[in-house]
Amino acid sequence: MLLSHRNRQHDRQVAAWLLLCAAVVFGMILLGGVTRLTNSGLSMVEWKPLMGVVPPLSEQAWQETFDKYKAYPEYRKINRGMDLDGFKSIFMYEYLHRLLGRLIGVLFFFPMVYFMMRRRVPAGLQPKLWLLFLLGGGQGLLGWFMVKSGLVSDPHVSQYRLAAHMGLAVIIYAYMLWLVFDLRLGKPRRGTGAGPLARTSLVLVGLVYLMILSGALVAGTKAGFAYSTWPLMGTSFFPPGLYAGDPAWLDAFEDITAIQFNHRMFAYFLIIVVAVFATLAWRRVPTPRVRLGVILLGLALAAQVLLGISTLLLHVPVSLAAAHQGGAVLLLSAALFVAHALRRQTAVAPAPQAP
């Protein structure tokens, strides 16, 4: 009994640490969105994993850093004439974004080692924690790979690399959150199987994730600025020139009209899917945890729709656009909670009593 109590206490400690890490990753995603929206991502033209912790501390150091930035196309083609104060403004967004990334590494690695040395990590969790650590390291490399795509003659980062960078950050966040659910709410038992609704919930999680990637393409191509009208795009539902490129399929990834159109259509489709799924889950699995998840899912979807429309109509203000990006991650969190609750509900549901 004492050992069981101690194990539960250790599970709570590990879950609290992972939840803190997930919260900081969520903040990292928001800050990354602000960095992109303020066009600050290319202000740091060097990648120094260790020395980059310290920002310029003197006017001379700031001027030297600014001079390095001036040698790259973004200054010459977009920000020519920017003064040192203006450079400091965009530099600090990118600097804080990278600093927070390093903080996440420290916040994750050292407690992980401590919990492992103290034998407080549940059986089977250690490989998952090491996988998260490796994914975090890969995320740092992917971030620099993304920045490098904009340090060329065309000073804009690749939308493909941006989507990959955003997608991996969301995977790390979602995996952390799922492990927290396992530790605090219990894992589904193996061999019991999951019902159709539980399996469908994982499909819903996948759809929300694809929607986030679609939003990353919108962000990477600045497609959100193309049509600041809703529900029409300009004067029509199907804008002129839609999929007029050669080859047409490439427009889905590189043409701003097609990218914004696809994002809207995906949103409409997701609204229908979530409405049907939530109705079925509410009726078929009337447990408090599942119903709480359904309510959170509905609220997150409604908020995300309102934020998306407002962001369009107001021509992508930084605050609303960042909130829209954060709202997408919260919608994914709600979908994960429902999926976990349904899978556990199916797994631990009591067997029917014999008459």
Rank of each mutant, 00 (worst) to 15 (best):
E254R: 10
R344G: 07
S228N: 15
R76A: 15
L314Y: 10
V338Y: 02
Y114K: 02
Q260T: 09
V45F: 10
P317R: 05
G326Q: 09
F109R: 11
L179G: 05
A354R: 13
P56H: 00
L151M: 05
A321N: 07
I104V: 14
L270D: 09
M166S: 09
V348K: 05
T38L: 07
P122D: 05
A23T: 13
V290K: 01
A169S: 13
V106T: 12
F108R: 00
L312K: 04
A303I: 12
L42E: 09
V45Y: 06
F115Q: 06
A194M: 08
V273C: 02
A61F: 00
E59D: 15
G195H: 04
Y209M: 06
L270A: 02
R12S: 11
P355S: 11
G150D: 07
P288E: 13
G105S: 11
F337E: 12
A341K: 00
V329S: 04
G101C: 08
M176E: 15
P196C: 10
P155D: 15
A322V: 07
P155T: 13
G81R: 03
G206W: 00
R8Y: 07
L250P: 04
H156P: 03
Y95N: 06
R284A: 10
G101M: 01
F109A: 12
Y69E: 02
L332R: 09
L185D: 15
M92H: 12
M117F: 09
P122Q: 01
Y160M: 12
M233E: 08
V316A: 08
P317M: 01
I309S: 08
D83F: 00
T257V: 14
G245I: 06
L306V: 14
V276Y: 10
S214A: 15
A351R: 13
D11L: 10
G298R: 01
E254C: 05
D251K: 07
A267H: 04
L270W: 00
F337I: 04
G33W: 07
A223Y: 04
P127H: 07
V276C: 15
P111A: 13
L100T: 08
H263G: 00
Y175E: 14
D255R: 03
L134P: 12
M1A: 14
F145R: 12
T257A: 07
I90Y: 05
S40Q: 06
V348S: 11
G138Q: 06
I259S: 07
R36I: 06
D154Y: 02
I212W: 02
T279S: 14
M166H: 13
L342G: 06
D11Q: 15
T279Q: 14
Y75W: 05
I272P: 04
L57F: 11
G308L: 03
F261I: 02
G81M: 05
P196D: 13
E64M: 11
A216D: 04
V305N: 01
L320Q: 10
L301W: 04
V318I: 14
T65R: 08
M146G: 10
V45K: 09
P122A: 06
D11H: 10
